[in-house]
Computed example of a mutant assay.
Amino acid sequence: MNPRIESLEKMIDGPRDGALLRFSLGNEYLKAAAPQQAANCFRAAVERDPQYSAAWKALGKALAENGDAAGAVQAYEAGIAVAEAKGDIQAAKEMKVFARRLQKSA
C-alpha cells in the first residue's frame, strides 16, 4: 500500500481526524486510482465540514471517475451552493463547468 495512505489511515479516529485529514486521504486515493475509496473520504470530509467547497469539488471528481455521473452532478451542485455562499467564485465556476460536461455526456 502507498505509504502516504497508510500514514493518513493511521490518523483516522484520532485527535487529528477531521475534514482536512479526510480530504487529504481522498486526494491520495485519487492519485492511486482508487476513486471509490476517495469518494468515501470526501463524503466524510463534507460530513465533518459541509462548507468545505474543495471537498465537494473533489467528491464530484471522484464520483465521476467511479462512473457515478448523477452522484457527481449532485456533489457539484451542493459544492456550487457552498462556494457561492462563501464567495469562492472560482471553485463555483469550475464545478459548474464540470457539472455541465457530465450532464451533456449523459
Rank of each mutant, 00 (worst) to 15 (best):
A83Q: 11
G71L: 00
E84M: 03
R48W: 00
R4D: 12
E9K: 15
A54P: 08
K10V: 02
A78Q: 15
A70R: 13
L63R: 15
G67Q: 07
V97F: 08
G67V: 01
A32L: 01
A83K: 11
I5E: 10
A19C: 05
G79H: 03
G67W: 00
W56M: 02
A38Y: 04
G14R: 08
K104R: 13
L21Y: 08
A19S: 15
A92T: 06
G87F: 02
G60W: 01
K10E: 13
L20K: 15
D68M: 01
M95G: 09
A69M: 02
Q36H: 07
E28P: 06
L102R: 10
P3I: 00
I80L: 04
N27Q: 14
K93E: 13
S7H: 14
R4Q: 12
G79R: 05
E28M: 04
A78S: 15
G18D: 06
G60V: 01
A72E: 01
A81S: 14
A69P: 06
A91V: 06
A19I: 00
C41N: 13
G14L: 03
A78L: 09
D49S: 09
L30H: 06
A39K: 10
K93M: 07
G14I: 01
A45C: 09
A64H: 05
E9C: 03
M11L: 15
K31T: 05
A33S: 12
L59C: 08
M1T: 12
Q74D: 12
A55W: 03
A45W: 03
N66Q: 09
D13H: 08
S7I: 02
A72P: 02
K57P: 00
K86S: 11
E9R: 15
P35M: 02
E84I: 04
Q90L: 08
Q37P: 07
K96Y: 01
A38N: 09
L30Y: 05
L59M: 06
S24V: 05
K61T: 14
Y52G: 06
E6Q: 15
K96A: 00
A45E: 09
Q74F: 02
V46Y: 05
A62E: 07
R4K: 14
A34L: 09
E84S: 09
G26M: 04
K61W: 06
P15E: 14
G87D: 03
D68N: 13
A62N: 07
F42C: 10
D17L: 02
V97Q: 15
I12E: 13
Q74E: 12
D68W: 02
S105L: 03
G60E: 07
A72T: 01
R48E: 11
Q37K: 15
A38K: 08
E9I: 04
V82L: 03
G87E: 05
A91N: 11
Q36L: 04
N2L: 01
Q51A: 11
R100T: 09
I5T: 11
D68G: 07
A81D: 15
